[in-house]
Amino acid sequence: MALRILCCVKRVPSPGSRINLTDDGTAVDATHLGFTTSPHEECAVEEAVVLAEHEGGTVTVLTLGPPESVEQLRYAASVGADELVLVATDGAPWDPQRTAAALAEAIKRLETDQETFDLILFGNESADSGGFQVGVRVANALQRPMVNGIKRIELNFDGDGPGSVSARRAVDDGFEVYELPLPAILGVKEGINLPRYPTMRGRLASKKLEISSWEGEAAPGGQALVRLRRPVEQTSTTTILGNSAAAAPAVVDLLEELGVFDR
């Protein structure tokens, strides 16, 4: 039986040295920015593709966001995803309850057309809003077990196919081991793998892949955005210690002054 894995990814701006905001303060000013997939979710896609390659199966990638999110779906396809699904919004940010409700509906819809997903992967948290909950809420709506913060995944097979998943979460002194019966849901953290880069062939193939898409619909939840702000920046003046290796004695003087030299 072929393994079916779903990954939920989110399109987020890719800011450089500073995050600028729109004049009304309700969004990140993305005029000069590119967009990307959150690193945790990029790793989720990589993990799914590796599992599907090893065990034989397919990877579906689902996103909720503006129509431009197809860019992140195509990227996922260029590194090995097989099926792409967009739940479209008008681009205004959705709160976590609303996002989760629409994603859960989308998953139910995908599972009536085809079989249940054995494994659904989320990121540990989204890179921009970082609500730490969309995956958990989806799991609750689908009545499936979910554990977050996962750094290692192993499928366990019984007679007819994958029966359970062992998942490890990194803590200070090692790993906590969880074992969930399938179908299950996991939130993964960057570091679980090193995502591959797309190949030229992958890029070309991803352009041809059809994307299933429909409008998202769900009621807003109880958390509402008022505005975004930048935290007060500590402004420091930088003391230039030199412009060449000749600055080394000045650096070591500094290390002595700061008390880290005599150790």
Binding site: P15, I19, V28, A127, D128, S129, G130, G222, Q223, A224, L225, V226, R227, L228, R229, R230, P231
Partner: peptide
Amino acid sequence: IQWGGSLLEDVTLA
């Protein structure tokens, strides 16, 4: 906090 602390978000909670 958003973006791991790079940004603050004011919200209402009902």
